[in-house]
């Protein structure tokens, strides 16, 4: 006998126009970032975005194993995105699926443009992302976490990369789509995860699932960039917090 799946709410917007969790259309969920959470990793970060709990640990640059993956003219970036078995409502199989492999790849491509991998030929930078709790938008939160972990390693980066999603539900464009909103298909849920390099004003991750007009696309790109700025401020604050020593005299 199967378990009854969780039921979805009747409406996704309250009468006053706010969203189920009380957010306005352009508001992020609670976002807290902590850098340097792992002792062994060369760089690490914990991202708490809504109920998402994501830990990224980065190693390198280091020798490539297996050797044949090494490139003599550049370093490589290898991202591994994995969801813990207990990160979702129904236990996930511990075997990595196609979705996890795809997200590993797109997160890697989102981060790579800010790195100077050619500075480290024959080496690899490995970032291992573990989703401890998933609540919608994990690939965006993973980008945020991976960028902080790599910055924490102390290798040069052109910019930080901030991940945030934008969506369209019941013909309204909203920032930072939550799990419930994403699954609310009655309104033709459209989800567009994006990674932005705020200082460079570039987009390095872009996917979309749903249906929108070109005009809506333009509007969404603008809104998601504003969201990226908010995420970037949190990243900046977290990185500074780790290294600030306010309690010691100056």
């Amino acid at each position: 006998m199967p378990l009854l799946p969780e039921s979805l709410p009747e409406t996704i917007f309250k009468d006053d126009g706010t969203r189920l969790d009380g957010r306005k259309f352009n508001e992020l969920r609670d976002l807290h970032i902590e850098v340097g959470v792992l002792k062994n990793a060369d760089g690490s970060a914990l991202v708490c975005h809504g109920k998402n709990r994501i830990i990224a640990g980065a190693y390198g640059p280091r020798e490539v194993h297996p050797r044949h993956l090494a490139k003599s003219d550049t370093g490589i970036l290898q991202i591994s995105y994995r969801m813990a078995t207990f990160s979702v409502g129904e236990r996930k199989s511990p075997v990595p699926g196609r979705r996890e492999k795809e997200i590993s790849m797109v997160v890697g491509k989102a981060i790579e443009p800010v790195l100077f991998l050619e500075q480290y030929p024959n080496t690899t930078i490995d970032v291992f992302i573990t989703v401890l709790t998933a609540d919608g938008g994990t690939r965006c939160a993973s980008v945020t976490a991976a960028a902080c972990a790599i910055a924490d390693m102390g290798i040069p980066m052109k910019d930080l990369v901030a991940g945030v999603a934008v969506g369209k539900i019941a013909n309204r464009i909203i920032l930072d789509v939550s799990d419930k909103e994403d699954k609310w298909e009655k309104g033709g849920a459209t989800d567009m995860p994006v990674a932005v390099m705020v200082n460079q004003k570039q987009y390095s991750l872009l996917q979309l699932d749903g249906s929108i007009t070109v005009e809506q696309f333009e509007e969404m790109l603008d809104l998601v960039f504003e969201g990226g700025k908010l995420v970037y401020e949190k990243q900046k604050e977290a990185l500074r917090r780790k290294y600030s020593t306010e309690d010691v005299g100056r």
Partner: peptide, 8 residues
């Protein structure tokens, strides 16, 4: 002042 990657 602590600065971060990308910061002007």
């Amino acid at each position: 002042d602590i600065v971060v990657p990308g910061q002007v």
